[in-house]
Nucleic acid binder design. Sequence first.
DNA 1: AATTTCACCGATAGTACTATCGGTGAAAAA
DNA 2: TTTTTCACCGATAGTACTATCGGTGAAATT
Lengths: 216, 216
Amino acid sequence: MTGTPLSRSEAKDLTRRRLIRAAFAILDEEGEAGLTTVKVARAAGIAQSSFYVHFKDRQDLLRALGDQAGERLRATMREARRRAHETPDDGERHRDTFRIPLEAIRRHPELFRIGLRARHDPSSPLQDFAVESSAAYRAHLAADLAAMGFPTGTERDRRRLEMIADGINALTNAMAVGHLEGRYPDLEEVVDVLVAFSKGYLWLLRPPRRPLSETE
Amino acid sequence: MTGTPLSRSEAKDLTRRRLIRAAFAILDEEGEAGLTTVKVARAAGIAQSSFYVHFKDRQDLLRALGDQAGERLRATMREARRRAHETPDDGERHRDTFRIPLEAIRRHPELFRIGLRARHDPSSPLQDFAVESSAAYRAHLAADLAAMGFPTGTERDRRRLEMIADGINALTNAMAVGHLEGRYPDLEEVVDVLVAFSKGYLWLLRPPRRPLSETE
DNA sequence: AATTTCACCGATAGTACTATCGGTGAAAAA
DNA sequence: TTTTTCACCGATAGTACTATCGGTGAAATT
């Protein structure tokens, strides 16, 4: 029943991980307002004052949460790139573009919800992290689109690309929220809709009607 | 310099409106966590204890804020319907579908930001209001799409319609955020992108290729 | 075996906020 | 004019949380 006897540092590390896990759960269920040292410590099974053995203060915990969330996010993006590279370049790869982020969100819904919330909350110490993450994701998508042949010559071109990337991100998030709330149970239906929307911006890619002969 | 001498009830009403205005500003700038009776009262120029002359408790203030936000939202939707009805049914009407909500958001950015934030915050007393509002808007868009000829026969058809409506809403919100953050200064460029995305789902509308002669 | 380290504990000082209470003066009612 | 009403005030009790402190025992070190 009782496992291996743990060394002191192992036990401390375990407690720290329990605290972080508890903090994520509370943040997800009750929001920023519910995240107190009292609740986190109790959920992790230690005294409130012992919280300070592991974190300098409340802010320090938030920083650790941001770090961990960032690490998972980066791992997810690496994984997505890897899988996209493996998929054959037919219709299925295009669907994968949407399916992979959705599956990543489903794997860590609490991280997704926390990020979504922090993104627009000026009182959240995680806001900077969320804003940077979404900007990074936007840039990542915009680069992919540029690689597909979207024009990036003018400032206006680049802005439009960023808007499209922003839109794809927003669409994906909205569908993910609907899926997590149970409104869209079937992920393949979700991917169908995202593919439908994508036909719109892909239309911008089609060969220019004017073969660059006019004066301007 | 000093205006008309106010009657007692007029003065009280003015103070109440000052409190609500201050509450919206604080909510927008500092988030839910910053909204305390101390700050609201000070911003409105009265003593903290006098807050309770106007509101039963903190919760009561939030309720009042939700009521007022709901009223403005409904007014905006009525206005949008009216204007859409007036616009000639050419390409411009289609652009108006996107332009009108964007302009409404620009008119009350603080309400928009507060709603966006509350939508995913379980600790926010405004969450219910935000969730209901977005569901109402989704239904409103879905009805418009059905009127345009999208199929609604099967459960799956209706779910797809809701997903598209959800997507349009998410796109509009994301573009509005970018505009308010200064990334997309030109609203016409924003409308261009929304129109591009819309070509995608409108493609689903096109006449069925099979004229219903086959066995199935 | 003797000593040191340290993760955890209970107690508590300090801080910020909510909500109530009795008092006050000017507006409103009599 | 006299009386009543009430929006606002300062003071304060009560609550919830943050962060610190000295103490304890078992693990780790010597």
